[in-house]
């Protein structure tokens, strides 16, 4: 990303007089957006929210499905929200069925692995250990962490895709300009 934005700056300077050139100001905004995008993604990895599975998804994206990553992530949040709600019900249900709770958490973990939601997976693993020990306190604490991570990740990724959408078309324009 950093490399790409650097290229953009230079290509911007070179193409100031070209017919396809945009005004200097939006170009600079664009490169700034790209920097933001790169930073955001980096922080998602650095803080352990995401792992390399997310890179895999990006590699799968191609002309046949140009928004593949976003579609997958959207699908993930839709489905995982349902699972989180199910877990919420199961955890409050009395008598508590740790077996089915565990199964639900396992499902959520499986789902989280699809987009490389590393931190969520980690929390789910801990959650399952508490299920196994029938430790309600631990389960509740874990569940809060899972939910928190779920919503944090959602916010960050929503932000990420928003930035991506803003940068995306500009990137194409710049490429054609070159």
């Amino acid at each position: 990303m950093a490399l790409a934005s650097h290229r953009h700056i230079s290509s911007c300077l070179c193409s100031i007089h070209s017919s396809l050139c945009y005004s200097t100001r939006p170009e600079m905004e664009r490169s700034s957006l790209q920097r933001q995008l790169a930073n955001l993604k980096k922080s998602l990895f650095d803080q352990g929210n995401l792992d390399e599975q997310f890179d895999q998804l990006e590699e799968l994206q191609d002309d046949a499905s140009p928004n593949f990553v976003e579609e997958v992530v959207t699908l993930f949040f839709r489905d995982s929200s349902r699972l989180v709600a199910n877990i919420e019900q199961a955890i409050e249900k009395s008598p508590r069925d740790y077996g089915s709770l565990d199964a639900l958490v396992h499902q959520l973990k499986d789902s989280a692995s699809s987009i490389g939601a590393a931190k969520m997976m980690k929390e789910c693993t801990v959650f399952r250990e508490y299920c196994d020990k029938r430790n309600l306190e631990g389960c509740l604490r874990s569940f809060q962490k899972v939910k928190k991570e779920h919503s944090t990740l959602r916010l960050k990724l929503e932000n990420y895709f928003q930035l991506l959408r803003q940068v995306g078309p500009a990137e194409k324009a710049t490429r054609s300009g070159n």
Partner: peptide
């Protein structure tokens, strides 16, 4: 059963 994995 996971729709996300299925798609991927």
């Amino acid at each position: 059963d996971d729709p996300t994995w299925l798609k991927i």
